[in-house]
Design a protein around this nucleic acid. Sequence first.
DNA 1: TGAGAATAAATGATGCGTCATGTATGTTGA
DNA 2: TCAACATACATGACGCATCATTTATTCTCA
Lengths: 173, 173
Amino acid sequence: MEGPHRPGRAGSEPDARWLDADEQRAWRAYLRMQGRLAARLNRELQHESGLSLADYEVLVQLTDTPEARLRPFELQSGLQWEQSRLSHHLSRMRRRGLVEREECSADGRGAFVVLTEKGRQAITAAAPGHVGVVRRFFFDGLTREEVAVLERLTTRILDLLADSGAETGDDAG
Amino acid sequence: MEGPHRPGRAGSEPDARWLDADEQRAWRAYLRMQGRLAARLNRELQHESGLSLADYEVLVQLTDTPEARLRPFELQSGLQWEQSRLSHHLSRMRRRGLVEREECSADGRGAFVVLTEKGRQAITAAAPGHVGVVRRFFFDGLTREEVAVLERLTTRILDLLADSGAETGDDAG
DNA sequence: TGAGAATAAATGATGCGTCATGTATGTTGA
DNA sequence: TCAACATACATGACGCATCATTTATTCTCA
């Protein structure tokens, strides 16, 4: 918490314009909200279905696919995750039996990630609760118009992040 | 990514009202923005000052304090972190020489966390750059009015999270 | 005053995310 | 055709966050 904020200020650098009072409040509120929301979502989801938010997102991608199987790099571009994160995460999900690995005959380097029956049951069971939580803790606090503003605003920030940054990293835990 | 979302729907549960198209878009945009922003902030801060966002927040709390020393439980209530998270984090910061531990004569259970000179230099060096990043990737994308809407909106969601949840968890990586 | 409850903080196990690096396999162009 | 490069994915180390549990101290009140 506690946004950026003037500590000491001994020297006299170029000065990056500190945040004014409104910005401070907005930034701190955002930071705190973001953190608590993510934590809550994760906890609820974890608690009532044994899935993390990350698991959920992977499973959604798979169920969105006719054959329920994807190459990891396809998953990656859908999720916008870092490659090693995905790789690690898939290992863990495989260990838990939510997905399986299948060789890819067409490309010797690659593989397929396949949704297992257990995985399908897990997300089917988890989804209604998850939507409920998102509603209770997010949309129930917002007017239609705020939802619209929020979408425009987040999209614009995403653009800022996209220019000047060809990296990958994404998402929260 | 990929918000909540209807998988299969075999049975016919109470139905938690799925998200409509606007909500879907807003939710996905929010999730993605949030993740990428946090990742970017962390990476930039880490890269140009060796501090994580979490380090930064702890140090801000300390520099906000006259004596630059606080009881862990005071830090905790300021940061709204889970107790064990704070404890672990302080251990790591102590190991890196950013803070020190001091016995508390008044309460035998407790201790003080004291900012070290190294810690002060670290945040003093980091702050301008950090503010710059927050500006570049966040406020530069927003109008004054959007900032106002954002603050109202995040505050309201925080209220939602506060009722119906006496827990602690918070923040992002 | 002493038993039980509350408070302050630490710890170990485990999952998660990133960074740096490794290892196949595929592609391309001189 | 084969060396250089790119692509697909895995891995180990490490910091971070949470959960459950533990220790020590202080508070309370019958």
